[in-house]
Design a protein around this nucleic acid. Structure first.
Lengths: 245, 245
DNA sequence: CTCTGTGAATATATTCACAGCC
DNA sequence: GGCTGTGAATATATTCACAGAG
């Protein structure tokens, strides 16, 4: 049984028009591949070609794109420029997003200088750090300001997304303060699980998590090779060896 | 009839293959939460407590842990130290993984200095960069060497995992050379889709992808709020009646 | 009683396979 | 003929809900 509440909750979680999370997570990849094709002067791609460029299979790509609408031409393919626009619009990249980066260590530096933001509508409008020695430095054309000014900066600069690149222990407090200003989107590089109220989205990027997942698969490969070598091969078994992203 | 061979083959396959990808991806999170609890001197946790600390719900946590074995005690919970060990073992973190970082820009610096690696069995044994000005610098206690030496370094240092933190255009070539040395696990921070032969695992961390996903949800929230604000007067008939009671 | 471990139910995601349009 | 868009089939993942161990 599905209650009206269930349906509302699902619609809210997914999207007004129902784009699955897994699809949303892949749209940026398609967008990158398309941008590259556009730069190379390619006007049209088939789902097969684009899928290869994006590292997925073509059925998945077509299904994903079908959630946005019917933007391809049967027998021909997709017009690159047009698809770039449609995906950008769907992702909300046709507007400017003003971002504050908190924590200007090596990672903060890398993020501040990262070219991939500006080209997709993200403008880093402020850098904050708690360390008085770092405050006042100029990084990526911005003067680093104190985290004391967080609330002022968010208000004055119209920030809508906060990026945390601080050490773990500092992150929760700064996150609380971001949320206090009304920000509802946080990208967290600090190695902690942030707790936030309902309605606030946190995405976490964890450098060591990814290595650990690789280690798991590497170990599994080693174990399988050992079994192989010992002659205990299960001939009926063939597992496709591809890491799910 | 079940022969001993059958049972061995099955047991091997299950223990090697049986853990779902989604579970594997969460194990590092549980491990981090458990490590924190251990440092705070907590000896035992319930699935509810651990789930909260890890930011998931308790049913999922229990299901995930059940794939590793029966390591809890009904009516009590899980012994923290023991679970740390079991998860570490399952992820392959009880052995040392020797890692090379290629590309020593801001991100490479951040990775080289990141404390979260060493504590989980990852040893950064070499740093490589293509820029002659960077080669020779000392970062995180290691002398940066030239990417020309890649093959030598991998062989001499017994590297099993490669981390690419280079600009996009350089990544595929360096990846090919890593694969050429026999490496089958690559963590890619460069903003390109790498193509690798069957049997090689690539995981990709993309700084701007995550921001784009946030932007999508932020846009959606804004759209919903707008509808809400505009639609308050034209409220849904039935709900209004029920609320009146 | 409490809290784990797990079948059964549900929800999501992927893949297949082909009808329908260019 | 070639390629998209999509139902139907399958595979994965999540959540429910409760039996049963301690």
């Amino acid at each position: 049984m599905t209650t009206p509440q269930d349906r509302l909750a699902r619609d809210t979680r997914e999207s007004v028009r129902g784009i699955p999370d897994a699809t949303v997570a892949r749209l940026p990849v398609y967008l990158r591949a398309l941008t590259e094709l556009a730069e190379r002067g390619v006007a049209t791609v088939s789902s097969e070609e684009l899928a290869t460029a994006a590292g997925v299979n073509s059925a998945k790509l077509r299904k994903d794109l079908s959630h946005l609408g019917s933007y391809g031409t049967r027998g021909v393919g997709y017009e690159v420029e047009y698809l770039v626009y449609q995906i950008s619009r769907e992702l909300g990249l046709t507007q400017e997003w003003r971002v504050v980066i908190i924590g200007v260590g090596n990672l903060g530096h890398a993020l501040a200088n990262y070219g991939g933001f500006a080209s997709r509508g993200f403008t880093v409008v402020a850098l904050l750090d708690a360390d008085p020695d770092v405050v006042g430095e100029h990084v990526a054309g911005l003067r680093v300001r104190s985290t004391d000014e967080l609330e002022d900066v968010v208000a004055a600069e119209g920030v809508s997304i906060g990026v945390l690149a601080t050490p773990g222990p500092a992150a929760q407090d700064l996150c609380d303060r971001l949320v206090g200003t009304g920000i509802t989107s946080v990208l967290n590089f600090a190695p902690v699980v942030l707790s936030v109220p309902e309605g606030v989205d946190v995405r976490k990027v964890d450098l060591s998590t990814e290595l650990q997942i690789l280690a798991f698969h590497e170990q599994r490969k080693a174990a399988r090779d050992a079994v192989h070598a010992a002659g205990l091969t299960a001939a009926d078994e063939h597992d496709a060896e591809e890491v799910a992203q």
